[in-house]
Amino acid sequence: MMRELAARLRATSGALPPGPVPLATLAEAHGGAWQASLLVLLAAPCMLPIPGVGVVLSVGLALLGLMLLRPQQHHQLPARLGRLTLPREGATRSLALLARFYDGICRLTRPRMPALAGPHARWWLGPMTVVMAVLIFLPIPFGNLLPAVALMLAGVALAARDGR
Rank of each mutant, 00 (worst) to 15 (best):
G90R: 08
E89W: 09
R112A: 13
C106K: 11
T92D: 06
D103G: 01
L81Y: 06
A115C: 10
G104T: 07
R93A: 13
P111T: 10
L81E: 06
G104L: 10
G82E: 03
L116R: 15
A91S: 03
T85K: 15
P111K: 13
H74N: 07
P78C: 11
P119A: 10
Y102Q: 05
G82M: 04
L81W: 11
H74F: 03
L84H: 14
A117E: 04
Q73C: 07
R110C: 13
F101P: 06
G82T: 07
H75S: 15
A115K: 08
S94P: 01
R88Q: 14
F101R: 12
L77H: 05
L98Y: 01
P111L: 04
T85E: 15
R100C: 05
P111E: 13
F101K: 07
M113Y: 13
G118Q: 00
A79K: 08
R112P: 11
R83E: 03
G82R: 04
L116N: 15
P87D: 15
G104M: 05
L81R: 04
T85N: 14
L95D: 00
L95N: 02
L97P: 03
T92M: 09
C106E: 13
Q76K: 14
L98D: 05
R112D: 12
A79S: 10
L84K: 14
T109K: 10
Q72Y: 08
R93M: 09
A96Y: 00
G90I: 00
L95A: 01
A91W: 00
Q72K: 12
Q73A: 12
Q72C: 13
R100S: 09
A99R: 01
F101H: 12
G118L: 00
H74G: 09
G82F: 04
T109M: 12
L98G: 04
A91F: 01
L98T: 02
C106F: 01
T109S: 10
